[in-house]
Nucleic acid binder design. Structure first.
Lengths: 186, 186
DNA sequence: TGAAAAAGTGAGTCGCCACTCATTATCGTA
DNA sequence: TACGATAATGAGTGGCGACTCACTTTTTCA
């Protein structure tokens, strides 16, 4: 797969960035069903321009997902470094749920990203990161040893999903997570 | 609101039933985005007939939701009677998640039914039923006293949501629920 | 049995949305 | 600056899905 890295023209690069920013906003607010035309409007660009940069709506979504994913992975690394080892997993849960409530895109990443769009090993990356958090927590004794990664990912995605579609307020997020955390603890 | 209970003609009644059965199947398999035409086909009826009985797609969905809800409430009552008092809540969780995996309609009921469609106090009924299960469990000492209904409903909906969109297999359902149950226990 | 009422039918309308392409504008470079 | 290459534009196309309605068929009941 030879990379087609022809340097973009200045206006093309500018618009590409605008489109990505607009798309991130629009899809976050309205979900992935939002129309491409709305993205174009918000970017201040004609609809044809969007399709020149991303031949398919799916391509655009995939690009957004990839950068979101990269940010999440880097968040995990930051937490891994800066939190007390037993607490990082819980902190990530809390942060992700709060973010999902604002940014619906998170859901589609966690839920089906691997299925509908194909983000190759990208989701696997997040899993590996979370696995790191899980092991740290288990070593620190804040999470039971018989808990495994699949159910942690499942809970993560479930709680985010629930929080968004159910419109949980902050208080309910906290109380619900408290139950989950209690279930993970020894 | 005078009830328009004009007795239906024989063929009308027959078709109404067929449509509801078909709709339940179709929406369960394909989700609420499935087309009305598919419902008509599966019912062996012209599309106009569907719209004669249910002027709006939403009306049809609402009808399906209502009967699903009624069945769930009656399931709860059965469990309430037949299970050991501390176990009924857990049994309901398990059963509902398994059902949601087969029947996507459950999700929309739990998630947003109150919002998008308006099923007036219907969802409230389910909540009251689950509240009964919760109190029984707390009285039996299998669930902590500081757990309240909102987070129980939230977990219920979250886990169903997650199980469906994530395509959890039975093993993963079990392991995930195990964590939740541990979190509810004293 | 034979109308009138009720119900069924399905081609057609309408709006939405992903995507295209002929034309116009902008950029980079000689 | 001028010109070829690259990009932007936005009206148009096609398909899909909810919903309508003029017409046909079935039921009901005197």
């Amino acid at each position: 797969m030879p990379s087609d890295d022809k340097p973009l023209r200045a206006d093309a690069l500018r618009n590409r960035v605008r489109i990505l920013e607009a798309a991130e906003q629009v899809f976050s607010e309205r979900g992935p069903a939002a129309s491409t035309e709305e993205v174009a409007n918000r970017a201040g660009v004609a609809i044809g321009t969007v399709f020149r940069h991303f031949p398919t709506k799916g391509d655009l979504l995939r690009e957004i997902m990839k950068s979101l994913l990269a940010r999440l992975v880097s968040d995990v690394e930051t937490l891994q470094r800066d939190s007390p080892p037993g607490a990082a997993l819980f902190a990530f849960f809390t942060a992700l749920v709060a973010q999902a409530a604002r940014q619906k895109t998170v859901l589609d990443l966690l839920a089906q990203a691997g299925t509908e769009l194909s983000i190759p090993d990208a989701v696997g990356m997040l899993e590996r990161s979370v696995d790191g958090l899980l092991h740290s927590a288990q070593d620190a004794g804040t999470v039971r040893r018989d808990v495994r990664l699949p159910e942690v990912m499942a809970l993560l995605s479930a709680v985010c999903q629930g929080a968004v579609t159910g419109g949980w307020d902050e208080r309910l997020q906290t109380r619900t997570l408290a139950v989950v955390f209690a279930g993970l603890a020894p």
